[in-house]
Amino acid sequence: MSEESTTSASERRTLDAAEQRRAVRNRYARIATSTNGETDCCTDSESCCDGESPDSGSQKLGYDDTDLHSVAEGADLGLGCGNPNAIASLDEGETVLNLGSGAGFDCFLAAKEVGDSGRVIGVDMTPEMVEKARENIVKNDATNVEFRLGEIEHLPVSDETVDVIISNCVINLSPNKPQVFGEAFRALRPGGRLAVSDVVMTAPIPKNVQRDPESMAACIGGASTIDDLRAMLSEAGFVDVEIKPKEESGEFIREWDDSIDLNDYIVSAAISGEKPVEGR
């Protein structure tokens, strides 16, 4: 691959915000309204799923059999890059906010952790996904879960009303990540925490990938470096920021595109931070 085909992390993204949001919304609308049980996995490549069910793909992401069997069929679309609940350490009675909640899988798992005294709010910008997630509330008898239509850059949540924010391979899709982290910080109560699974960039991504709307919408073209993410989180006000790459994620990342080895450019990571209490 020639040097002209790559771009550095410091260069501006190649899709404007409107085009990027449109590509993301269109892709996830297609997935939400699929009638044949296929979920596109991570790209539109026919070889991406390789015949696997969402369950088998989710096991690679870090979910165990208990997770997979505790949620009714239709919520797990196998679209993430990790298991944010595994790093969130949820407690009974907490209020959890899921950025880019999709069909609701992580929300329903979180709901079981926080119990009837807790609350889970999912936010997604795709109307078709929100509709699907609301249907899944009934299937899962999840009375402590609700889904709201909105962008993660403009969260439909009041200030300091959330204990924990989770997200699964969604923030990389945003054209304005600093604003996402700023909104997350606003919504968290003092002492609240962020627990995110997402992809980070380990090497300059090819320009043709960054310019491709489908790649941008499929968790590939919009990844940031660890240093950039750490700076964004710190600037938003988060403390005790940790970003831990998961090298084992190569097992599923290599399936995301059959035309390029994405392991050369991105890796899944566990990203966490806290909103300090007053006076800290």
Rank of each mutant, 00 (worst) to 15 (best):
S2F: 05
E3H: 09
T7C: 08
S8G: 14
S10H: 11
R13K: 06
A18N: 04
A18H: 05
R21F: 13
R22D: 13
A23C: 08
R25W: 05
N26M: 08
N26K: 13
S34I: 01
N36K: 11
T39C: 03
C42G: 10
S53H: 05
D55G: 03
G57T: 08
G62K: 09
D64N: 10
H69C: 02
S70D: 00
A72V: 04
L77Q: 00
L79K: 01
G80N: 01
G82R: 01
P84N: 00
N85C: 13
S89L: 15
L90S: 13
G93Y: 06
T95M: 12
T95V: 15
V96Y: 11
L99D: 04
S101T: 04
G102S: 14
A103F: 01
G104F: 13
F105H: 14
D106C: 15
C107V: 05
F108A: 00
E113I: 00
R119V: 15
V120D: 12
G122D: 13
G122E: 11
V123C: 04
M125Y: 04
P127L: 15
V130K: 04
E131P: 10
K132T: 14
R134M: 11
N140Q: 09
D141A: 08
T143S: 03
T143E: 08
N144V: 07
N144E: 15
E146L: 12
E146Q: 15
R148Q: 08
R148S: 06
L149M: 02
E151F: 01
I152E: 00
L155C: 12
L155D: 00
S158K: 08
D159F: 10
D159E: 03
E160A: 04
T161L: 01
S167F: 12
S167H: 04
V170Y: 04
I171H: 00
N176D: 06
P178V: 03
P178G: 01
Q179G: 04
E183W: 13
L188R: 12
R189E: 15
G192T: 08
V200C: 07
A203G: 02
P206I: 11
N208E: 10
Q210P: 03
E214H: 12
A217D: 03
G222F: 09
G222N: 11
G222V: 08
A223G: 06
S224P: 13
S224A: 14
T225S: 10
I226W: 09
D227K: 03
D227H: 08
D228K: 10
D228Y: 02
L229F: 02
A231F: 13
A231E: 13
S234K: 07
G237K: 07
F238I: 14
F238R: 01
I243P: 09
I243K: 03
K244C: 05
P245I: 06
G250T: 12
F252Y: 14
R254N: 06
D258S: 02
I260T: 03
I260E: 02
D261M: 09
D264T: 09
A270F: 02
I271Y: 14
G273D: 03
E274Q: 09
E274P: 00
K275L: 14
V277H: 07
E278H: 07
